[in-house]
Design a protein around this nucleic acid. Structure first.
Lengths: 121, 121
DNA sequence: GAAACTACTTTCCTTTTGGAAACTATTAGC
DNA sequence: GCTAATAGTTTCCAAAAGGAAAGTAGTTTC
């Protein structure tokens, strides 16, 4: 009894799986979607704003995740010449292409909440 | 100089962020999207099939992630009465509602690959 | 000059995640 | 009886993720 390849291993399949892997590597971690979702609503936010808005995150994590996403050109960091220096973060145009993902995730989460009440399993 | 709430903290905002958090908690970890993407293409897959298809995963992780997703009603486990017992995994109808998310993630990943070549930053 | 604000960074620690390898149990083939 | 396949579980360990608190540095306000 030999084992035969059960899945159709076309290039399309492999490419799709690889694409999923790529995306999730860039958006890995506990906070990225949370931060992105927040940044998409308030278009320019300062570090301390994010620290207050993103519920539960600490300065270290926020700093690290922001750097991470800046490197991937998803967000833009701007230092302002104010008295106590302030820094603004905002989505880049490229980062905004993530909107459909974020929207679908938010939509699904809302439906999930609803399904917890009306058990139509 | 007092600090004022900079974001419009409407219920819609909070709900959206909460929804994102909910979804990502259910789909956390290195492998879930990978497994789900695979299961969406080949509709019924056995444990060993998945072990071979999901590149790099080990038996322990696969087992754990499958249990996790079964508990959340995203996938269904069926034990078959074959000589060496086989087990089939497939998406539930509910699990299939994740398709838009997976599709958007795959789509974005494909675009990301493309952008690595044509640098139009 | 002490306190408070900005935006971090650093240190130290715990928890979580993930992986390799070995092991369980059953059945089939040689 | 040995090997191999099925589907896992268990153990042991390393690495990564994440958090709390303190520290750095510059400026302004009292």
């Amino acid at each position: 009894m030999k084992k035969e390849p059960t899945l159709n291993n076309t290039l399309i399949c492999k490419g799709r799986i690889l694409a999923i892997k790529d995306t999730m590597e860039i958006l890995s971690g506990k906070w990225k979607f949370h931060i992105l979702g927040t940044l998409m609503q308030g278009d320019k936010l300062r570090f301390m704003d994010l620290l207050r808005e993103v519920d539960g995150i600490g300065a270290k994590m926020l700093s690290k995740e922001l750097q991470d996403m800046e490197m991937n050109h998803l967000i833009k960091r701007t230092v302002l010449n104010t008295k106590p220096v302030t820094v603004e973060y905002e989505m880049t145009e490229y980062g905004k292409t993530l909107a459909p993902i974020i929207d679908e995730i938010a939509k699904w989460g809302i439906g999930y909440r609803a399904s917890l009440f009306s058990k139509t399993d």
